[in-house]
Nucleic acid binder design. Structure first.
Length: 491
RNA sequence: GACCCCAUCGUCUAGUAUGGUCUAGGACAAGAGCUUUUCAAGCUCUCGACACCGGUUCAAAUCCGGUUGGGGUCGCCA
């Protein structure tokens, strides 16, 4: 205990996760507020691993929790494992036993005898809370299996580690009187308590897997940025008080105070988190954003880790930066640029076959061929001039070309997209489009035929119509086969 | 059920300690418009709340009491 001498000055807070599950939103928020308070006051953040339940604790969970904290850029100053401190708990339990404040149960457990009276706690967030000890049962300190109970280990550790402020979830309020009693029994100095409001799921009940709790590591996989995530967590139960929504961690550290933490539970709103994420993505240096995007592109198999065109990827990043909300969205939206084959959406396929533009595409390719310096301006010039020549509106050609190039009806500006793809890729895809039209049954014919058949059926009668119907069925079959081919969605 | 906590737009919140400056401000979402080759983004606008009842007071979102509603905890889990 020499270690704790001399640390009685200054703020010491702790985050005490139990490695029996992943770190999720609630835990992360508690960790964040402790971290902020420590950094704001120049104090220390102690990480205490509550692994007294040896059957449920897992190394993978511990690793995952530590990794998630690191991802969120929260560091800690000291780390302790309760599983290594069992002797300590025994020692204090024995002491209470000797003093007659605790007794031994038949099974060997050590139990603290709770005296009657009033227990008052002065919560930094909620103010005075009063409990009647009559409602508190005698407390087990050491279980039959010799391991300490949560409340006991918690008190011994918080006291011995010199914790000055306990910031934890609201759900611990009812543990507090039990703990206060133990502090007093062992003659420990009481820390200050601050009970954070809970984070609730969509349905207003405590966040759980059913109501939307997700491991922090999953948010990472879904393409959220740690800065955005932290920012969002910060806004849940705390406010800088000046209508500021986007607040970087440095000024948050500066401004943070327990006084500004509110009492009401907050519902976790993914939409706002996503909005914040988009804001952070927009602000990023494209170079840095690219580094964050690369792992996602690689695991999607769109870019090879060892050799890729840095310049190309960078220009794609720049083109999509303003239109994505998550890193995963980038992969979804920009995938067509990198992919060797174009993937078609259902909608795009339908629109594409509404009109055969083989001739127009051919002319367009010729136009593009003429351009030696294949850039945005030149592309637009040639494109618009062709459109004029054909007596079309720009949109008449823009949309089909976009579909042909990206497989999607929506996307960034067409000329930028073309410039990004480059002349060869563009030509190649325009050529593919023409082939598709050639091999596809004409929709107009299909419709005409259908109308004709209906007419014949009604006018002439079933017998005669049968042949025509069969013909249509054939046509239908071809269309189906073709559709099946397209179903793989790849050229 | 018992004990405890909480109560401002659908959601996150400002405002509550020091009652008047609040016919309640901002953000997300939703809706409309502008822009435009589409979708986003961006910009502009609209919708939308002090849970209820009773006090105190010249004056209450703010103070007090009650009601209602929601949540948490009631393990030899943490």
């Amino acid at each position: 205990m020499n270690k704790i001498k001399g640390i009685s000055n200054g703020v010491r807070v702790r985050f005490a996760p139990s490695p029996t599950g992943y770190l999720h939103v609630g835990g992360a928020r508690t960790a964040l507020f402790n971290w902020l308070y420590a950094r704001n006051t120049g104090g220390k953040l102690i990480l205490r691993i509550e692994d007294t339940d040896t059957t449920r604790s897992r190394k993978v969970y511990l690793d995952e929790i530590l990794e998630s904290l690191s991802w969120l850029k929260m560091d800690w100053d000291e780390i302790y494992y309760q599983s290594k401190r069992f002797d300590l708990y025994r020692e204090y339990a024995d002491r209470l036993l000797n003093e007659g404040k605790a007794y031994r149960a038949e099974n060997g457990a050590i139990i603290y005898k709770v005296e009657s009276g009033k227990i008052e706690i002065n919560d930094l967030i909620r103010g005075q809370i009063e409990f009647d000890a009559a409602f508190i049962k005698d407390q087990v300190l050491i279980k039959e299996d010799k391991s300490p109970t949560y409340n006991f280990a918690c008190v011994v550790d918080d006291a011995l580690l010199g914790i000055t402020h306990i910031l934890r979830g609201d759900d611990h309020i009812s543990n507090t009187p039990k703990q206060v009693v133990l502090y007093k029994a062992m003659g420990f100095k009481l820390p200050k308590f601050a009970h954070l409001p809970l984070i609730l799921g969509r349905d207003g009940s405590r966040l759980s897997k059913r109501t939307g709790a997700t491991a922090i590591s999953d948010w990472r996989k879904m393409g959220y940025l740690p800065e955005a995530f932290t920012n969002y967590l910060l806004l849940l139960g705390w406010s800088p008080g000046n209508n500021q929504e986007i607040i970087d961690i440095k000024s948050a550290v500066k401004k943070f105070s327990i006084k500004n933490i509110n009492k009401t539970a907050a519902v976790f709103d993914k939409d706002k988190l996503t909005w914040l994420n988009a804001q952070y993505i927009k602000k990023y240096e494209p170079e840095k954003l690219m580094d964050l995007l690369l792992p996602f592109l690689c695991s999607a198999g769109l870019v090879k880790k060892e050799n890729f065109d840095r310049e190309e990827v960078l220009s794609v990043v720049k083109l999509f930066q303003k239109r994505i909300a998550t890193l995963v969205e980038f992969v979804e939206f920009s995938g067509f640029v990198f992919a060797g084959k174009v993937k078609f959406t259902q909608d795009a396929k339908k629109k594409f076959f509404e009109r055969d533009l083989t001739k127009e595409f051919k002319l367009l390719i010729e136009r593009f061929d003429k351009i030696s310096d294949f850039n945005y301006t030149k592309i637009e010039e040639e494109f618009r001039s062709l459109v004029n020549e054909l007596g079309l509106k720009a949109g008449d050609l823009v949309h089909p070309v976009r579909i042909a190039l990206s497989g999607n009806t929506v996307g960034p500006g067409l000329f930028e997209t073309i410039a990004l793809l480059g002349k060869e890729k563009t030509k190649e895809r325009l050529n593919m489009a023409q082939k598709a039209w050639k091999s596809a049954p004409r929709l107009e014919c299909f419709v005409l035929l259908f109308v004709a058949v209906s007419m014949m059926t009604t006018l002439i009668g079933c017998g005669t119509a049968k042949g025509a119907y069969e013909g249509l069925k054939d046509d239908w079959r071809t269309a189906q086969q073709w559709d099946d081919k397209m179903k793989e969605n790849w050229w």
